[in-house]
């Protein structure tokens, strides 16, 4: 019994059918709890007023936008090395979710930036990096769409994901070099001194857990759809041949 057994589409479908309702349900519970806690039961910030509450959407979305790409990178590597179709399909399934998180992070950032910095958009390193990340997601999704043969598409997008990751990291440093920026430092870090204070911190962690679970649920659901679509395509092909 190895972990790779779950990469068998059949086994994956069985396991995910069982896990999906739990993951989805838990994500709804944690998100509702975290957001209500954050929005209604935390004090306003002494400088930022009630606008501070947008961090409960902004920070988790931004974290997951990056984590989704990392997950796609790992899934692509697994596909390229071990040739498990489920892995490639999971990477494909995660991309639009990651893109959506990137959008949420950009939009909530703009909504918050307008009252705080007095502008919807600034060419701040973090903002710029997210815009570039957004372009990477678009290119990745577009390449999946453009290639007809599913295995070819999986290989090409896998290579793009690896090369793109290297260039995304390079871009991050380049952008930092290019402009020092307005954006505050990390909201969460292991160095307790830099953290936001405890009243904001706990509901934020709950929201982050909720976003992680939501990401998992969405990716599981979308991967299941992709597997079914592949199965359908394979059956149609064999019907054409027979």
């Amino acid at each position: 019994m190895s972990i790779w057994e779950y990469a068998n589409p059949k086994k994956f479908m069985q396991t995910s059918a069982w896990a999906l309702p739990w993951v989805a349900g838990l994500s709804v519970v944690t998100l509702v709890m975290g957001l209500i806690w954050g929005f209604f039961f935390t004090p306003d910030d002494y400088k930022q007023g009630s606008t501070v509450k947008i961090i409960y959407l902004h920070v988790p979305a931004a974290m997951m936008a990056i984590n989704a790409w990392v997950m796609m990178l790992l899934a692509s590597l697994i596909w390229l090395i071990r040739r498990h179709h489920v892995s490639a399909l999971a990477a494909k399934a995660a991309a639009p979710v990651g893109l959506t998180f990137t959008f949420i992070a950009l939009v909530t950032g703009a909504l918050w930036g307008q009252p705080m910095w007095g502008t919807w958009w600034a060419w701040d390193p973090r903002l710029t990096s997210f815009l570039i990340l957004c372009l990477f997601y678009l290119g990745y999704i577009a390449l999946w769409q453009a290639v007809d043969d599913p295995d070819t598409a999986a290989d090409l997008t896998g290579v793009l994901c690896i090369v793109g990751s290297v260039f995304a990291v390079l871009s991050r440093y380049a952008v930092n070099f290019w402009n020092q920026g307005l954006h505050q430092g990390a909201s969460l870090s292991l160095d307790k001194e830099e953290n936001v204070s405890d009243v904001f911190w706990l509901p934020l962690v709950v929201c982050i857990v909720g976003f992680i679970l939501m990401f998992l649920a969405l990716v599981l659901m979308r991967t299941r759809t992709e597997i079914r679509a592949r199965r359908l395509q394979a059956l149609l092909t064999r019907e054409r041949i027979a």
């Binding site: 068998n8 589409p9 059949k10 479908m13 040739r83 498990h84 179709h85 597997i227 592949r230 199965r231 395509q233 394979a234 059956l235 092909t237 064999r238 041949i241 027979a242």
Partner: peptide
């Protein structure tokens, strides 16, 4: 020969 179609939705890496 075409791979056998598994009944009842079971299928492996070949998807068919």
């Amino acid at each position: 020969a075409l791979p056998k179609v598994a009944r009842g939705g079971g299928f492996d890496e070949a998807f068919a």
